[in-house]
């Protein structure tokens, strides 16, 4: 049994919940889901998902509810996290924007909305390190990863820019794997890399 916490203060929470259930199923495990909208729940979770949504709203509510420190402790304990889009922005060291309170659990800087407005949002197949076939990547007002720390490995690039990274237990993407039926990145984040540490 895998206890999977979905940070649920705002964003595409149910999509991540379904994706982690399917990923667990593919590994013959059951996932117990915990929706995290207030403090006191993160410590029960084996893994955490940080959904897409609006990073200013999410980071504000994480701080108000006292969830921010709990996520930092989760990462410090070496437990896995998958953060997508707004999740990546919040997890990053610096989003270069005072409206976002960064958790600083991932040594990258990001530029919000760097791919443009919604009419510039797109889907495209993307080659990802460790996956044999391209991943159907959906970029929605996506952030761009700028500076990448020494301990961070880049898993995928779009037009030379990093769009998927990994540092220790944290995997983060500019795009939204949870919007597709493809759960390979959820498997990579929670089962394949975590097998060694769990």
């Amino acid at each position: 049994m895998l206890t999977a916490g979905v940070v649920a203060v705002q964003g595409d929470v149910s999509e991540h919940a379904r994706a982690v259930e399917r990923a667990a199923d593919a590994h013959g495990e059951d996932a117990e889901l915990v929706e995290i909208r207030h403090s006191g729940l993160v410590s029960d979770c084996d893994v955490l998902l940080m959904p897409g949504g609006e990073s200013t709203t999410i980071s504000r509510l994480l701080r108000q509810e006292g969830i921010d420190e709990e996520i930092r402790a989760h990462v410090a304990a070496g437990k896995p996290v998958l953060a997508t889009c707004a999740g990546l922005i919040v997890a990053a060291r610096d989003a270069k924007d005072e409206r976002v309170h960064n958790l600083d659990v991932l040594d990258v800087t990001v530029d919000r909305n760097a791919f443009g407005r919604q009419k510039d949002s797109f889907e495209a197949p993307l080659d990802v390190d460790g996956l044999s076939d391209p991943f159907p990547a959906v970029f929605i007002r996506a952030p761009l990863i700028d500076e990448v720390g020494d301990d961070v490995s880049v898993l995928a690039r779009w037009d030379d820019t990093p769009v998927a990274v990994k540092q220790g237990p944290v995997v983060a993407t500019s795009f939204h794997p949870e919007l597709t039926e493809d759960v390979r990145l959820h498997r990579l984040a929670f089962f394949e890399q975590a097998a060694a540490s769990r």
Binding site: Q10, D12, V13, G53, A86, D120, S121, E123, I140, L179
Partner: peptide, 25 residues
């Protein structure tokens, strides 16, 4: 390097996906 020509904008997935990001807001 990924093929930039396979990029698609304004699909149902991209449009509905934007709406999904507003949930809980």
């Amino acid at each position: 390097e990924t093929d930039l020509n396979e990029l698609k904008r304004g699909t149902d997935l991209v449009k509905r996906g934007f709406a999904q990001m507003q949930k809980g807001g």
